[in-house]
Amino acid sequence: MSIRVLQPGLLDTVQDAGRSGYQHLGINPGGVMDRVAMQVANSLVGNPPGEAVIEMHFPAAAFLFEAHAMIALSGADMGAMINDQPVPINKPLLVSGQTVLRFTKPVGGACSYLAIRHGLSLQPWLNSYSTHLKAAAGGFNGRALQKNDVVPFCITNSYTTVLGKQELMILPWTAGVADLYGPPGQLHITEGSGFALLNDHARQLLTGAAFEIGPQSDRMGFRLRGPSLKMAEYREQISAGVTRGTIQLLPNGHLIILMADHQTTGGYPRVAHVITADQPALSQLRPRDEIRFLMIPAETAEELLWQQEQRLHFMQNACKLRLEEWLSHYGLH
């Protein structure tokens, strides 16, 4: 009961909702870049929303399913194929043993998620399945997936009665994801403590100018290209805790947005924070994509997060109902 990596991808790692409670020891939370896509993929196959998934960046790995499985893909569209058939994202799929999943072209978005019903069978590290690359711990052997890795999954159904001789079955419903993300390229931010240190012109630029995701962007942070922002007087702060979404101002006047694998502390001025509700959309941007910032009050940020959480619950419940109905029709569980 496993999947085998036939060919490695750029960066394919096991992730979950992240590792909390260890940041005072310098162990950052990690976890998926796009928590909405993780929840969608998991919900489609009936998993808890924060179950471990495989996060992929293009070019992604090719996987061989060594047993029947119910899976779902969400997040970036990377032209997924099961054997020679294109398969959609955001739908549950039944695949038979000895089929190959591969990704053919980057259609849209940056990270794609593979969820397998009942989850992966791995050992958690510090209560999380997220891969901590620097610590070489968690996930699958603490590293990105490599050729011939065999990732075991938990299985309780054979699906043989449903699949018969078919190698693929696309289940007939789709998770609606449109209203789970904000408008692309438009990111809501809240003021950080360093905002007051910017000069007037720099404040106008922050919300008035366009920025671009820079080429040196990864799971740790997105470096932005755009106008250089000046402070009335540049001074580093005494190092303090930072969070995901924190926008730091580097000494050269450029911005960096902290992402999933960010360090726990930092001394650069924190000019703003990307709101939590907009981080999934941000995660799906690629180098050269344009973004604009819109400043909102902290209360509104929390309201937008709350609304997103309600929609995620709605999506989870809708997926659960459809799947339970379908499973009971086939006498499965």
């Binding site: 909390s20 940041q23 005494i238 190092s239 303090a240 805790g241 502390t265 929390e302 997060l305 709350w306």
Partner: peptide
């Protein structure tokens, strides 16, 4: 409270806003 990050002269307190709400 999901994380606490003590530093030189500050303590960051991370919380689950949705759970509190």
């Amino acid at each position: 409270i999901t994380d606490l990050i003590p530093a030189y002269a500050s303590l960051a307190v991370l919380y689950d806003a949705a759970a509190i709400r």
